[in-house]
Design a protein around this nucleic acid. Structure first.
Length: 306
DNA sequence: AATCGCTGCAACCGCTTTGTT
DNA sequence: GAACAAAGCGGTTGCAGCGAT
C-alpha cells in the first residue's frame, strides 16, 4: 500500500491543469493544508511540492520572468552581508521576489566570481587561438594564474570583508561593461570624502595558508544597525556609472530623516583610522588586494610605475 | 548545422522549526 | 513533555535556452 502511494506521487514540471487545481484549492482554503491536496485525491503531489509551487510560481504579485533591478541586486548584497544566507528573510525585503529567486541570484553571482578567479583547466583547448580580438575577460583569463577553490573562497571572503559585498559585486558586473579607470575612481572617491593620504604600507600584512599576502585589517564595521525598511529602498546607491563612488554619499531618508549611510553600511575601508575624520589610504584603496582580483580591471598606475 | 559551455530557473531533497495531539 | 505531522528553509540538481565556436 505504501509502495503504491509512493508510485502515485508525481514529480517534475507542473502542468497548467495542475496549477489550476492548486489555485482552486488555495482560493477555497487559503495557502495552507497542503497535504490535504493529495489526501483528497486532487493532485498526485506531495504537500511540500504543492506549497513550493504556490510560493514560487502561483502566488499573486510575483515578479516572474523579470531580472533583478540594480536596486534589488544591491539590496540583496547588503542584506546578505548582514543576515548571511537567510534567503527567506532577505526575500521579505524584496516585493515580488521569492527566497528561491534570491538564492538563485546569489549563487549565479557567486559562480561568476569563481569563474573569474579560476583559470580554465589546462586540458581545455584554447578556443581563441589565432584570434586577434580576444575580449577583455578572455585576455585577463590568459594572464591570471590558476587559483584553487580554497583560494577562490579565501579571496572572496577577504575581499568582501575588506571592502564590502557591494563593491566586489559591482566590480564583477563591470566585466560586462567598459574597463573603468580606477585611478579616476579612486581620485573621485578621495575627493568625495576628503581623505587624508596615509601610506598603506604602514598597514601590517599576513600570509594566508594558500600563500596570499593580505593586508591585516581591522574588524569590518557592521552593516545595517537596524532593520532596513522597504520604504527606504530608494536610498540604495544608484546603479554603476563611472562616478559610482558618489553613490556612497549621504542621502536623507524622507520617511524618518535618517541618513542612507546609517541604513546601508557601505563598509568602505577606513584602515582603522575612522576616528581620524574619514581617513583612508589613497595609495592603498585598491593596490594591496590580491592582484588576481584586480587584473580583471585596468591597472592602476602608481608612483613606482613612473 | 552541430557541438559546447554558460546561465537562469524550477523543482527536489534533507534538515530544522513550528504546531498539534 | 513527548511524539508526530506539517510547514518552512537552504542546498543542490537537472534541464532548457541561448550564444559562441
Amino acid at each position: 500500500m505504501e509502495i503504491r502511494e509512493l508510485e502515485m506521487i508525481k514529480k517534475g514540471p507542473w502542468s497548467s491543469e495542475e496549477d489550476e487545481v492548486l489555485l482552486r484549492h488555495v482560493s477555497k482554503y487559503g495557502p495552507r493544508e497542503w497535504s490535504s491536496i493529495r489526501s483528497k485525491g486532487l493532485l498526485p503531489r506531495t504537500g511540500k511540492s504543492c506549497r513550493l509551487r504556490w510560493v514560487n510560481k502561483l502566488r499573486p504579485n510575483l515578479k516572474t520572468g523579470c531580472k533583478f533591478t540594480a536596486e534589488e541586486e544591491r539590496l540583496v548584497i547588503e542584506l546578505q552581508a548582514q543576515y548571511g544566507n537567510k534567503w527567506a528573510k532577505i526575500a521579505t525585503y524584496l516585493q515580488g521576489r521569492t527566497d528561491n529567486d534570491v538564492k538563485n541570484f546569489w549563487s549565479s553571482r557567486r559562480k561568476r566570481l569563481e569563474r573569474m578567479l579560476q583559470k580554465p583547466p589546462a586540458s581545455k583547448p584554447k578556443k581563441n587561438k589565432g584570434k586577434a580580438h580576444l575580449n577583455q575577460v578572455q585576455q585577463v583569463e590568459e594572464m591570471v594564474p590558476p587559483c584553487s577553490s580554497n583560494q577562490v573562497e579565501e579571496i572572496l571572503s577577504y575581499a568582501t570583508s575588506y571592502m564590502g559585498n557591494t563593491l566586489v559585486f559591482e566590480m564583477i558586473n563591470l566585466q560586462d561593461l567598459i574597463k573603468p579607470n580606477y585611478q579616476q575612481l579612486e581620485n573621485d572617491y578621495l575627493s568625495a570624502v576628503e581623505v587624508d593620504a596615509t601610506p598603506l604600507h604602514t598597514v601590517p600584512s599576513f600570509e594566508s595558508s594558500s600563500g596570499y599576502n593580505f593586508p591585516l585589517l581591522p574588524e569590518p564595521e557592521p552593516l545595517l544597525d537596524f532593520p532596513l525598511f522597504p520604504e527606504c529602498q530608494d536610498l540604495v546607491p544608484e546603479p554603476f556609472d563611472p562616478n559610482f563612488v558618489y553613490g556612497f554619499e549621504e542621502k536623507k531618508c524622507l520617511q524618518c530623516a535618517c541618513s542612507s549611510s546609517q541604513k546601508l553600511g557601505t563598509r568602505l575601508p577606513t584602515f582603522g583610522l575612522e576616528g581620524n575624520s574619514q581617513s583612508a589610504s589613497s595609495n592603498g584603496f585598491f593596490k594591496d588586494f590580491p592582484s588576481e582580483i584586480f587584473e580583471y580591471f585596468e591597472h592602476i598606475p602608481t608612483s613606482s610605475d613612473q
